[in-house]
């Protein structure tokens, strides 16, 4: 099942192990007339394997289209994308934030993840029943679906050489993108009502009533751009009267420090 020869065929191999493709050669055709089909992985995902078999059987029964295989016999619909494109941590890469040590939640490239250059679908499909997947759980990709595995991806736990350039660039432009996004989030994290009253009625620590002047300026231009050529909800919200039921407990003189239990009895 280690499609490309994998570990038994790695440097130091004394048994003569090799991949099925190497063993059978390019002229091989099965009883159905197809060359070797490779469902790669060390070990391959069970779901990928059964799906490939199912795709072939469905086609043979005239129920489904001809499954597409790539130049190395991989099921193309499963393996044409890099694992990074669907990785839940790829967003960190985009914003230039990287895990510094194992156990950190950010992009794992600097602790040895080869995901951006490896064709695999594990983060999208999960390891079993759509649960898990290497990077989903925090595991760096070591390229086990690739013909170069393991020797072209080791030593493990060391960042791939290419990441020095791509990761470095990502830190620069990603850092800028990240700051712009945090800025947009500042306005998105407030109800229009709060902007109007300069008050956030949250009982939780850290909520800021007033916006900083610079945030106000940013928000002003942001809304200008956002509503241009359409309806300006910022203007409409400004004209909205304050709801009379706002802050109802204080209006009725209920002591905020005293609490009631679920039956409404004073404690």
């Amino acid at each position: 099942m280690r499609t490309w020869g994998g570990i038994p065929a790695a440097a130091g191999n004394i048994t003569g192990s090799m991949s099925l493709t190497d063993f059978l050669g390019k002229d091989y055709r099965s009883a159905l007339g197809v060359p070797v089909v490779n469902v790669p992985g060390c070990s391959p995902l069970g779901d990928n394997f059964t799906e490939t078999v199912a795709a072939v059987l469905l086609f043979l029964q005239n129920l489904a289209p001809l499954p597409k295989f790539d130049e190395l016999g991989r099921p193309a619909w499963l393996f044409e994308e890099t694992v990074h494109r669907h990785c839940p941590k790829a967003g960190y890469y985009e914003e230039g934030v990287f895990a510094e040590e194992p156990g950190d939640n950010q992009c794992l490239v600097e602790i040895g993840c080869w995901g951006p250059v490896v064709q695999c679908n594990i983060v999208e499909r999960g390891a079993i029943n759509h649960v898990g997947g290497c990077m989903v759980a925090g595991g760096a990709c070591i390229g086990c679906t690739m013909p170069g595995f393991p020797d072209k991806y080791s030593p493990f736990y060391k960042s791939p050489p290419g990441s020095a350039i791509s990761g470095g660039l990502s830190k620069v432009y990603g850092g800028g993108i990240r700051r712009l996004r945090r800025m947009s989030m500042k306005t998105g994290n407030r109800e229009p009502l709060w902007d109007k009253t300069d008050e956030v009625p949250s009982g939780w620590e850290g909520a800021k009533d007033k916006r900083a002047p610079v945030d106000k300026v940013n928000a002003y231009f942001y809304k200008k751009l956002q509503y241009r050529g359409s309806v300006n909800h910022a203007e409409r919200n400004k004209k909205q009267p304050l709801p009379s039921s706002r802050d109802i407990l204080r209006q009725k003189g209920v002591h905020a420090q005293r609490s009631t239990n679920v039956r409404g009895e004073r404690v």
């Binding site: 390891a127 649960v131 898990g132 997947g133 290497c134 759980a137 925090g138 595991g139 760096a140 990709c141």
Partner: peptide, 13 residues
């Protein structure tokens, strides 16, 4: 298992 190890049978973590 895969919630901790990422994949089965060879954990990636």
């Amino acid at each position: 298992y895969v919630l901790i190890g990422g994949k089965y049978p060879h954990p990636q973590t």
